[in-house]
Nucleic acid binder design. Sequence first.
DNA 1: GAAATTCATCGCAATATTACGATTATTAGG
DNA 2: CCTAATAATCGTAATATTGCGATGAATTTC
Lengths: 103, 103
Amino acid sequence: MGLSKTAAFSTEQNRIAELAKALAHPARVAIIQHLLKTKACVCGDLVDVLPLSQSTVSQHLKAMKNVGIITGSVEPPKVCYCLNMEVLREFTAAFGEMFSRCC
Amino acid sequence: MGLSKTAAFSTEQNRIAELAKALAHPARVAIIQHLLKTKACVCGDLVDVLPLSQSTVSQHLKAMKNVGIITGSVEPPKVCYCLNMEVLREFTAAFGEMFSRCC
DNA sequence: GAAATTCATCGCAATATTACGATTATTAGG
DNA sequence: CCTAATAATCGTAATATTGCGATGAATTTC
């Protein structure tokens, strides 16, 4: 029917999938990489860096913010985006734990 | 227009996104977890374990096989699926490297 | 050769994602 | 108050994903 049967899976499985989805697009990867590089918060120069329109970038940022992997703080008239280290640790922990036994 | 502008991003960014996409669905996570648990190869009992139809499971397996994160070897009339440790290492390396500096 | 088993693939429907331009807040500065 | 700057949201269109039942291919067993 086209809808992801999230209800049929565990909370953990859904969370892991959600975290993975936050990086499951090259633009999202590029955003993360840029935020890592510029260390300090960055705002709409993401639009300059990415080969996408302002509205599209804004949508990606919203999606990533919903998952929690980035945060956005208003600094009128700009918005400053940062990586959420808490969630990055959650990410590495989840996958690290998952694959620790085998490789 | 709805198409992922993959051409506008680097090969590395696309590969990372691809790897993430392989885990960006709870069913895929469940498949990985089950393959980790049963260590040895598993076949169609994935269908018994997952709350999805045979055809849907087959599709997920195909997608994951395309990314390379699992392999399937024919053992008539069954097909035996295994994790590809090579690609799992690629996965952990990619994200480990990415986040090594910050957390 | 006729079932039975196992899995891939096809065809379809529903929903999600990606992308953009245009519009709408919000706020700073004149 | 008017304008410029910034970013979110809306509306729309195209494409991708998810899911299932039905069908098809390969192979074993009887």
